[in-house]
Structures are given as C-alpha cells and as structure tokens.
Write a protein that binds this DNA or RNA. Structure first.
Ligand SMILES: [Mn+2]
Ligand SMILES: [Mn+2]
Ligand SMILES: [Zn+2]
Ligand SMILES: [Zn+2]
Lengths: 138, 138
DNA sequence: GTTCAAATGCAACAATGTTGCAAAATAATA
DNA sequence: TATTATTTTGCAACATTGTTGCATTTGAAC
C-alpha cells in the first residue's frame, strides 16, 4: 500500500476505511485521471457503487481530488497537489484529453492563462481543457 | 417564427420538421446556452425526449450548435456562428457559467488564448470555461 | 472491550441516455 | 396535385448514471 494513503486520510480528518484506502490508492498509482466508471470497473464487486459516489464526493470536498470538466457527460477526477484543502482548491493547471485513447492528463506545469472578461463578469475559476492526440498515440 | 429558421435548416440539408423548427427557435430566441433538460421543460409534451436527443445530435454534427463542457455532468448547447459547418466548428471563444443563476454565456468576443503544451501533445481543440458571478447576479 | 459516531450496503427510486422498429411526416417524383 | 420514396418521429424497452433513507457494520475514542 502506498505510504501516503493513511497520511492523506488522517490529515483530512477522514476515518481510514477500506474503500477510501483502495480508491485513493488507484489515484496514487495511476496518476492520470479516473472516471467514476473506471473506479467501478477496477474495484469489481469489492464495494458498492454508492460508496464510490460518496467517496469521490468526500475527496473533492476535502481537496484530495479535483474534477475535470468534459464535453461528453463524463466528469473525471484527478489527485490534487498537496496545497489544496477543504474549500480551497489550487489546481489551476491545464488538462488534456486524448481523443484516441481517452486518457486525461493533468499538465501540472502548464498554467492557465489569464482571460480578460467583459465588465460585469466576476471570475472565480477558469478551466482549460485541451484535446487532441497524446504522445503515446502519435 | 424567426426568419433564419428555415434558411438554416435548408442550408444544412435538413428536412423542415416541427421539432427542429421549435428547438432551433429556442436557441435563436434565448441566445444563451441550453441544456437538454431546459429544452425538455420548455417544450412540454410537444415532442418526445428521444427526438430532442436526436435533434441536438444532428444540430451538433451539422455545425448549427456547439457543446460547452462542464464539471457537473450537464453539457450545454449554444448556437454556432454562421461559419461553422459539418465537421468544421470554429467556436473558439470563451464560455462563462454563472454559479448563482446557472446561466451559461458564449463570450463571442473573448478569444481562447494560445496554450503551449509539452512536446508530444498534438492539440486540436482548446476549451476555456470560466465561472463566477455574471453581471445580472452581482 | 465498550460506547459513540461515521461509513457502508442495500433497496428503491429518479434522471439521463440509447436502440430497434412501426407509424407518421416530409421530400422527391410523376 | 397525387403517388412514391426517404427521413423523422414516437413509443417501448432497456442501459447507465446518480440520489436518498435507513438498518447494519465499521472505525475512532474512551
Ligand atoms: Mn488536474
Ligand atoms: Mn459558445
Ligand atoms: Zn492517447
Ligand atoms: Zn448569474
């Protein structure tokens, strides 16, 4: 088991349960983004679908993972940087979805560019999702 | 009925049907983005849910409307500019979702900034979705 | 180990999306 | 305009996705 798992859960005042350990491990291992369906498949019959929904919800609230918007009705989730916390996400990086293999990447080193909006719009968040072909699918 | 409706359908080689006219009219009137659920509500029992799905799909393919990604599993649709066509969308503008009223705006005059990705990523599209408070909800 | 609080599994349900096919509407043709 | 051919629609049936309440189980604290 990945050493960071218990740490992360404790730091966020979450009780250490099997499902939380397992789901968090999936994120730590794969590094890429995961959809709810991915987790459901990988975990087999190990725990209930509802538990996955609730665990993802909890992790997002605590700043352990963040959501990645998409245009195909299938939100994906990825690990946050360590400085995210409850109510304070700092995941202002660009995301990339490969049209070919479906993999979603967090491009941690590509910062979201500033966008200037018309007067009257108060911006609190900017999501940038690029798509195309990833390096593995060239 | 909006004069552009029949034109638009003919130009895209689509037969003129009640549902297509009505749904296209909704987009022309409201100017803002619409979700499937919005259309279903507004149209009452007028036509089947399946017809709405198929009409939206057809409109997207023909370049009449475009999808707007979101982080809440509810894709929205908005009218394209006239120079979009089958297989060739040119809607490279920024979108804004108001956290308060839920309205989604196409900011036609705010161009998507160029993003430089690491070597190996071949980008074909960049979506920028800002969120916060719109001018009406200040 | 006991107690208390939190998380889980289950069931039931709601919402969303897909597919096949007969009936209806539209377009093309005569 | 009437007939024919093509496309679209509505319906049914189903699959997937997401939500809620509640009893049971698990984990944390003592
Ligand atoms: Mn990310
Ligand atoms: Mn738009
Ligand atoms: Zn790929
Ligand atoms: Zn608003």
């Amino acid at each position: 088991m990945h050493p960071r798992i218990v740490d992360t859960l404790k730091r966020n005042q979450l009780s250490i349960t099997d499902s939380r350990k397992k789901i968090l491990e999936m994120f730590l291992q794969r590094k890429g983004a995961l959809a709810h369906a991915d987790i459901e498949q990988q975990s087999g019959e190990e725990f209930d679908r509802v538990t996955i929904y609730r665990t993802l919800q909890t992790f997002v609230e605590k700043g352990i993972i963040h959501t990645i918007p998409s245009a195909d009705n299938s939100v994906r989730y990825a690990l946050c940087k360590d400085d995210c916390s409850e109510g304070h996400h700092h995941d202002n990086h660009v995301h990339f979805m490969c049209d070919h293999c479906g993999t979603t990447y967090c491009l941690d080193h590509v910062t979201v560019p500033a966008v200037v909006l018309p007067t009257g719009f108060k911006v609190t968040q900017v999501d940038v999702v690029a798509s195309g072909t990833c390096m593995k699918c060239q």
